[in-house]
Simulated scan of single mutants.
Amino acid sequence: MNLLSGSAGDEVFSMRKLAGELGADSSSLYRHFRNRTELMLAIVDHVLVQAMHDYRRQGSWRARLVDLALRSWDAYAALPQLAKDASHYPGSGPGSQLVIEETLQALGDAGVPEELIPEWYHRLMTLSVSLIAAHAARQTSGPAEQQRRLETFRVITVGADPEEYPALAHYSRHIKPTGFTRASFLATIELVLDAVPARQETSGTQ
């Protein structure tokens, strides 16, 4: 479905355009969903249901949190147009409930103090959603826009005055514009997990 998976230049998602992709009239969608928001909530949750279909609560608390994060990344990486919008829609169904439940369970099994579990859940979710959305925005930008972004970045880095910005001038040819790959997403998640106030070991099943 192009309106969900889309690449650069895809049109903005709408009930009318989705109906066209399905070969139906938009009125048929309104028989099931009152508005675009309801439809988007259902689609976002369906993506999470599919991402979690073979999930098993096994392994260390840390391995489980990494697994949950990567499942979300992989699901939305395949649907960048949807991922750009997904951060605006709260969890609303069984897929969302399962992700939340398993995140809270893993933090509890880590030995995080009970009063801190909601805070750490929020940190992990905010980080994951933000990085996934940022990646999606980059994926769906056109080649011309990406090239302009790269050229602008090169101007302010390679052209930096070494007297005023010595560190920037030194590393200018080795740094790139912000953007995330699956590997860098995982590395960022791992850094946050290092800070989780866990009281349990990460090896074996907790």
Rank of each mutant, 00 (worst) to 15 (best):
E114F: 09
A137C: 11
L127A: 10
R149P: 00
R138L: 11
R149F: 05
H135N: 12
F153T: 03
V129T: 09
R123K: 11
W120Y: 06
A136F: 06
V158H: 04
R148L: 11
T157S: 06
T157C: 05
R149L: 04
E119S: 10
Y121W: 12
G159P: 00
L116Y: 02
H135W: 13
V158Q: 03
R138S: 12
Q139I: 07
I117C: 01
I132P: 04
H135K: 15
T157I: 03
R123F: 11
I117G: 01
I117T: 08
Q139Y: 13
R154F: 01
V155G: 00
L116E: 04
G159Y: 05
A137Q: 13
Q139F: 06
R148H: 12
S128Q: 14
E119Y: 03
A134W: 02
P118T: 03
E119G: 08
S130K: 04
R148E: 13
L116G: 00
I156A: 06
R154S: 02
R149H: 04
E145Q: 11
P143K: 07
T126L: 14
R149C: 00
D161K: 01
R149Y: 06
P143E: 08
Q146C: 08
P143T: 09
G159I: 00
D161V: 07
A136I: 07
L127G: 07
V155W: 02
H122C: 10
R149S: 06
I132D: 02
A134Y: 08
R123H: 11
W120D: 02
G159K: 00
E114S: 14
S130R: 10
E151Y: 00
F153W: 10
G159T: 03
F153K: 05
R123I: 15
I156V: 13
A134T: 11
Q147Y: 03
L150A: 11
T126I: 04
P118W: 07
A137K: 12
D161F: 04
Q147H: 02
M125Y: 15
Y121T: 09
I117K: 04
S128P: 10
I117A: 02
A134K: 00
R148C: 07
E114N: 07
H122I: 13
I132N: 01
R123D: 07
R154V: 00
L116S: 02
Y121F: 14
L127I: 05
E145H: 06
L127R: 10
A144M: 01
R154Y: 00
R138W: 02
S141V: 08
Q147A: 14
R138I: 11
A134M: 14
E119L: 10
R138G: 11
P118D: 01
S128N: 15
R123C: 05
L131D: 07
